[in-house]
């Protein structure tokens, strides 16, 4: 039986879906071609942005989606394992689910970061992370905080095992 650890907001990913698409990619050489993350985000934003009656919809979708894809690429355990993306439009909501592998050694840390998102004052957490991160040039760690705090994105994390790989599915719902 699969063991799941689910953290975050309740999101009905299948309710009133009007349109959807999915894609998968192998993040093989993406660190050497970092603009591809932005290309994926801009494509999704252009595709879905026109569904919403708001002039800034594409820009907002691109901003949020880019953070999620960056995280998936950075956290993925094995570059030979695909990252799966599902995107949906439902009424005035934009939903996405991005699933990637994560290394064993960082699973507990990731779970702890996710729990902090739902048990902390996010303004205080932002300041704390920035002040703590002054010495760490690789990690930022504020992307998910900004999505929740500044864009009010509903977010859910599902950690599970699949074919011996640890995986996380990050589901978001953005009201536009």
């Amino acid at each position: 039986m699969e063991k799941h650890t689910v953290i975050g907001d309740r999101i009905d990913f299948n309710k009133d879906v009007e349109t959807t698409f999915s894609m998968s990619f192998l993040p093989l050489d993406i660190f050497d071609n970092w603009d591809r993350v932005s290309s994926i985000s801009d494509f999704v934003a252009e595709y879905f942005g026109t569904y919403y009656n708001k002039i800034t919809a594409s820009n907002i979708i691109s901003t949020i989606f880019n953070e999620l894809v960056e995280n998936a690429v950075k956290f993925t355990k094995n570059n030979s394992q695909p990252i799966h993306i599902v995107v949906k439009k439902s009424n005035n909501s934009f939903l996405s689910r991005i699933t990637n592998t994560i290394p064993n050694h960082s699973k507990d840390t990731f779970i702890s970061i996710c729990r902090d998102l739902f048990s902390s004052n996010l303004d205080e957490l932002f300041v704390k992370k920035i002040e703590a991160g002054a010495m760490d040039n690789k990690k930022s760690g504020i992307g998910l905080i900004l999505l929740k705090k500044d864009y009010q994105v509903d977010t859910s994390f599902d950690f599970f095992e699949d074919n011996k790989f640890n995986k996380v599915a990050v589901t978001i719902k953005l009201t536009i």
Binding site: S62, E67, G133, A134, S140, I142, L146
Partner: peptide, 17 residues
């Protein structure tokens, strides 16, 4: 500046500090 990702916001935050 049309887009700035969280790493950019983090870097600018360091400058603010």
């Amino acid at each position: 500046l049309v887009f700035l990702n969280s790493s950019g916001i983090s870097s600018l935050s360091m400058f603010i500090l």
